[in-house]
């Protein structure tokens, strides 16, 4: 099963290496890792997408906890979660196909962010399935380059209204 882990880490040199090294060494799968600032100065939030059964996930979480630079590990898969990825795609496009592509992009709430003489660049955010779907539609025009950020995620706020 696919899991999204949210890991708070010290914003220290090599902390990404420590985490990636550990996951690799213990033969855990990594689908993506994204890192950035967190709400607290001095801490970064790492979002790791991984696959594994319950036992594997328990080990991933416990082994991550053993790293001194890891402050908190949360498996977001058991909570309602907002998970997003950003993708930039450079698609082959001459003057004749630009409008056509713009039409494909629009329902995805994606946008054309750069136009060249024989290509355009599309920016899209969303979950992985949405990005993959758009990619499939763009493929016939010739995909020149892709850059994806990997998933970043937060758990949703509580739904109950405090009484």
């Amino acid at each position: 099963m696919r899991h999204i882990l949210s890991v708070l880490v010290n914003d220290q040199p090599r902390v990404l290496a420590r985490v990636a090294n550990l996951l690799g060494r213990r033969n855990f799968n990594i689908e993506s890792i994204s890192v950035g600032e967190s709400e607290e100065p001095g801490l970064s939030r790492m979002v790791i997408v991984t696959r594994g059964d319950e036992r594997t996930m328990e080990q991933v979480s416990k082994q991550l906890h053993k790293l001194v630079d890891v402050i908190k590990v949360q498996d977001l898969s058991s909570h309602p979660v907002v998970a997003r990825e950003l993708m930039l795609v450079k698609v082959g496009a001459g003057p004749s196909t630009r409008t056509e592509i713009a039409g494909i992009v629009e329902p995805f709430r994606a946008s054309v962010v750069d136009v060249g003489s024989n290509s355009i660049m599309v920016q899209v955010t969303g979950d992985r399935e949405k990005l993959d779907a758009l990619l499939d539609l763009l493929r016939p025009y010739g995909i020149k380059e892709i850059a994806r950020t990997g998933v970043t995620a937060l758990s949703r706020g509580p739904i109950k209204v405090p009484s």
Binding site: P13, R14, A17, R18, N21, L22, R25, L67, V68
Partner: peptide, 14 residues
């Protein structure tokens, strides 16, 4: 040596 010993130390410092 910090990189080399990362997987074989409890923790390390540079």
């Amino acid at each position: 040596i910090t990189g080399i010993t990362m997987p074989i130390t409890k923790h390390n410092y540079f």
